[in-house]
Write a protein that binds this DNA or RNA. Structure first.
Lengths: 197, 197
DNA sequence: ACAATAACACAACACAGTGTTGATTAAGGA
DNA sequence: TCCTTAATCAACACTGTGTTGTGTTATTGT
């Protein structure tokens, strides 16, 4: 029996080329116009083999997303445990660095055309880390918090998209400052006057 | 010759049932799993007729989106010209009322699964009206404004989605207050400390 | 190094949906 | 009413789908 089911180099290769093939195609057209046959032809993989690993194009894309998600998640948790990195600002900055370093995949998954639900998941990851470190969440009522939360998360998605569209011209440091500044600003504006009737 | 090309009742009927059919299907499954044949069968319209009006499912959906967009746009411009409605808050409240009144279509197009680009377009519409009336935009530097803009627009998308998920439990008034309050809060937080290096 | 295992390729399959055509029928507008 | 135009119908070739069984080859653990 195999302890790790996907150590097999053949599997690794197959998944890798299929992934690469879909990514290349996604840079040229939206997922709904990409066929499984197309992906397989480009990757030089038999279609039957594709079905052995994925249900369809969307399933393959989902697994690519998961990859990015866990990568970000890992580098986040590494950062927050690193005693040399006690600074929240620095951590946020590192995330932007990470996005820049992985610009190709980032542009696909996090830009305008990417899956919005996935993008929110990513931002939630970052947001939770920032706010728990800043210890600001508890100062909000539970009812309002939900909505501020929703607003901020999606707001972050928007600002990252803007950054990508702008060819990441602004430095990671500036972006980090901006996002944290706005997050804090939002929470404080809410504390100032309650929206409850 | 016909002055308006789509006055013909037959065309109106065809488009209407096709629209209705797609909307009904969208309530059960995502667009990528809906076929043209399926739409036509449900609407009892010949497939050849479908192709006379639309390129594919996505084209039909786009036209449904345009419909909602122009409807919101019209009711917005009506409100802003109404001298009995000088209040920005009241106008924002009316938008939430409109969304509630059209809950069925709103849930499809503006919720989590809807097209994000479209959602941003809608929010931009509302945001522009609010900010020009509040006369707050000019107090920002052009460079920063772009990013605050992106953040706020998408933030609004998020908060509306949260509201829909929450079955529109909060009143339109509360929502309007919240959105405007957060928008102002964001802009002021930016004025307080510049993010520029 | 060897044998067992598992992944992949290949070909073939029935099937469903696509997009287009030309002829026919029916309804609309002036 | 008469002319126009939309919709229907049937048929078309075509592309992609999802699945199957068989044979081949690479990988892994002993």
């Amino acid at each position: 029996m195999t302890t790790k089911p996907s150590t097999d180099r053949r599997i690794k290769y197959t998944k890798m080329v299929l992934r690469e093939s879909l990514i290349a195609l996604l840079e040229r057209k939206p997922i709904e116009r990409i066929t499984i046959k197309e992906i397989c032809d480009d990757a030089d993989i038999n279609r039957a083999t594709f079905y052995a690993h994925y249900a369809d194009q969307y399933d393959l894309l989902r697994q690519i997303e998961e990859d990015l998600y866990t990568n970000i998640s890992v580098s986040l948790s590494q950062l927050s445990q690193d005693p040399a990195n006690p600074n929240t600002l620095k951590q946020a900055e590192n995330i932007f660095d990470y996005l820049r370093d992985n610009a190709r995949i980032t542009r696909l998954l996090l830009s305008d055309r990417g899956d919005f639900s996935f993008q929110k998941r990513v931002m939630r990851l970052v947001y939770d880390l920032i706010t728990t470190q800043l210890r600001v969440t508890k100062s909000l009522s539970a009812a309002d918090a939900e909505y501020v939360y929703a607003f901020t998360i999606t707001g972050c998605v928007g600002i990252v998209q803007r950054w990508l569209d702008d060819d990441m011209r602004k430095s990671s440091k500036v972006m980090a400052k901006m996002v944290i500044g706005m997050t804090i600003g939002l929470i404080q504006s809410l504390k100032a006057d309650s929206f409850i009737e």
